[in-house]
Each structure stands twice: as structure tokens, then as C-alpha cells.
Write a protein that binds this DNA or RNA. Structure first.
Length: 344
DNA sequence: ACCTGTGTTGAA
DNA sequence: TCAACACAGGTG
């Protein structure tokens, strides 16, 4: 019960300390320059001379007996464990992330202090603040922080004009600038049982050129939708009807998006060198959201449960009062099941 | 048998 | 607050 003080109310109190700018981010930031050579000692690092306490040069990092590195941060007289890592720097980064979530942007870090000047850092700061401390800690312990961050970037800044929360800031393009290639209002047959979308010839040849003339019987194209989901369609030219079509995979898209005749599908491409393709859909005279909110029997995931945490709650606590449950407690519970992921 | 993360303590 | 040290329990 004593853990109840770990809630989020402490976001601004850091300012009371108001550390004058004495912070010296340089203190331990040398890693890149000279020192990094000797870190070869890895798992089983006791090969040197029996058991040595390396005593990390990074804040918040503690050596583990097996040569790995633990990361921890303190709050309210209590240690918050941030996980164990193979590399000392990984552990240090974990601490950095945690300390910036716990104590704000001007906390002392091992590496970069996440400046507000960089767009990337701005985004990461927003990401940090959008998650509870416990969630961040959970990500660190599971080594999923970077993935989650990237995922979030894709969702919010993927370049979809209407998707980014921050689009009003004109701050998009962070990730990948993209341009619209073309749109098409789907015909009844495009959304029927034919499992194909006809792409007007001129648009097809302009934007999706088929290599080596025509003979290629299909080219698999990947398109990412607004949710970050990747759709793979077979793209080919039908001599019989002299038309370019998306076939295999198309009906699934129609079904999941609830596309109806008259709706608009639009194709986009990143302007970068990678030429990532994107697809979006919107209702005839409505928004994207309207489509996905239609009473279409939603996505079947074959029983796979995407949300791990709730499932773990159930596992650990049965049906006991979940509402009062503190996330820290949940953390303790779930970690024990997730350690498996760490193996590397 | 091995490893992680906690208990604990003294120093900063 | 912090890290060193020791080790109880969990994990494979």
C-alpha cells in the first residue's frame, strides 16, 4: 500500500528545485571519443581476473555479477529498477530516458539531454510525457522503448496530413515527407468480389511503372496505411482487359476498411530515397474515420491478444478489483513474465 | 545452475 | 540520492 505515492502528480514540482544551469551534460558524455575501446568484456566478463567490480562510469548504471549492467533510478527513497542490459551504454541510455521522464528535461543525463531545439527531441519529449512513468519503465525493462517511440512517430508524424496530432503546427515531415500520387473513387467492381482494383492506365504507368515491359506477372507492392499497418498487394497488368490492377490482398483491404463504391482511395509516396508507398481511404463524402467506424465487423485477429498488459493483469490477479490497481503493481507482475524477451 | 532485481547500508 | 555489496527467489 505504501507504493501509492508513485502517481503522476509530480510533473511540475521539479521546478521548485530549480537547479541553476549547473548541469554539466559533458560530464560523462565522452563515450564516443576515446574510451569506448575497452568494453569488449561481455557476458562472462569475469574472464579477466576473477570477479571485478567494474563500477560503471555512467550514472544510474550498476554492474551485475554476470558482466551485464543494471539500470536504476531513485525516487521517493525507493529504487526503481530499469532492467538489465548487455552493454553499459544501453543501461545508461535507459537511465537517461527514465530520468528525463521522472525529473524533466533539465535533469542530468549520461548522454544527450533531449534538447527542445531538435525536432526529434521535441517529439520524444512529447512521447515521454504522453506516457506514465510506469509505462516508460515498463518499456525500458522490456527493451521496447525504441520500438514504441518509433511506432508513435509513425502514427503521429507519418506524414498523413490528417493523422498527425501536431499537423497544425506544421511540424510534420519529421519522419518522411510524402506526396500524394493520385486518388480514385472506387467502382462497384473495385469493392465487389473480383478482388481487384483497376488503376487508371495513365496513373498506373506514371506512378507504378512495371519494369521490363509487361511480362512481369505481378509485382508485390507494400503500402502502409495511416495506422502504420502494411498492406501488400499484387500489382500487374492484365492484357485481356488492358488494365493495371491491384489483385491479391486487395479484397482484404476492402473488407477491413469497409470500402464502398464511391469511396476514395488515395496513394502516396514518400519523397525520400526509400520510396515508401502509402495508401489511405476515405468515405465518399466523409473522412477516413467514418469509414473505419462503420458497423463493419471489425478486424479478426485470430484470437491473438494484442494487449499484453491486460492479459497479465488477469493472469496475476484473477478478477480482483482492477480499478484500484496501481500500475506499479502491475509492472511487478508482468515483468516476471516478460523477462524472456530480454534474451539476446 | 544461473541470473535478475531487491534488501540493505554507508557515502555523497 | 546514489551505488556497492550480498543474496533470495525466479528462470531456463
Amino acid at each position: 500500500m505504501d507504493r501509492s505515492s508513485t502517481d503522476e502528480s509530480t510533473t511540475t514540482d521539479n521546478s521548485t528545485l530549480n537547479l541553476p544551469v549547473t548541469k554539466s551534460p559533458e560530464r560523462q558524455c565522452r563515450v564516443g571519443s576515446g574510451i569506448s575501446v575497452i568494453i569488449d568484456a561481455e557476458v562472462g566478463g569475469d574472464a579477466e581476473s576473477g570477479r571485478k567490480r567494474p563500477s560503471s562510469r555512467f550514472k544510474g548504471v550498476v554492474p551485475q555479477p554476470n558482466g551485464r549492467w543494471g539500470s536504476q533510478i531513485y525516487e521517493k527513497h525507493q529504487r526503481v529498477w530499469l532492467g538489465t542490459f548487455n552493454e553499459e551504454e544501453e543501461a545508461a541510455r535507459a537511465y537517461d530516458i527514465a530520468v528525463q521522464r521522472f525529473r524533466g528535461g533539465d535533469a542530468i543525463t549520461n548522454f544527450k539531454p533531449l534538447s527542445e531545439t531538435t525536432k526529434e527531441d521535441e517529439i520524444e519529449t512529447a512521447f515521454l510525457n504522453a506516457h506514465s512513468k510506469a509505462e516508460i519503465v515498463d518499456m525500458l525493462r522490456k527493451h521496447t522503448y525504441n520500438d514504441e517511440l518509433e511506432q508513435s512517430k509513425r502514427r503521429n508524424y507519418g506524414g498523413w496530413p490528417a493523422a498527425g496530432i501536431f499537423s497544425s503546427l506544421g511540424a510534420d515531415r519529421t519522419r518522411k515527407a510524402q506526396e500524394q500520387l493520385f486518388e480514385k473513387a472506387v467502382t462497384p467492381s473495385d469493392v465487389g468480389k473480383l478482388n481487384r482494383l483497376v488503376i487508371p492506365k495513365q496513373l498506373a504507368e506514371k506512378h507504378f511503372p512495371l519494369k521490363s515491359g509487361n511480362n512481369s506477372y505481378g509485382l508485390l507492392l507494400n503500402f502502409e496505411d495511416m495506422g502504420g499497418k502494411v498492406w501488400r498487394f499484387r500489382y500487374s497488368y492484365w492484357n485481356s482487359s488492358q488494365s493495371y490492377v491491384l489483385t491479391k490482398g486487395w479484397s482484404r483491404f476492402v473488407k477491413e476498411k469497409g470500402l464502398r463504391a464511391g469511396d476514395i482511395v488515395s496513394f502516396h509516396s514518400s519523397t525520400g530515397p526509400d520510396k515508401q508507398l502509402y495508401i489511405d481511404s476515405k468515405a465518399k463524402n466523409g473522412s477516413t474515420a467514418e469509414i473505419s467506424n462503420r458497423p463493419v465487423p471489425i478486424i479478426r485477429l485470430f484470437g491473438v491478444n494484442i494487449f499484453e498488459v491486460p492479459s497479465n493483469i488477469g493472469t496475476c490477479y484473477g478478477d480482483k478489483r482492477l480499478r484500484e490497481m496501481e500500475f506499479w503493481t502491475i509492472l511487478e507482475c508482468s515483468n516476471k513474465k516478460q523477462r524472456v524477451i530480454d534474451a539476446k
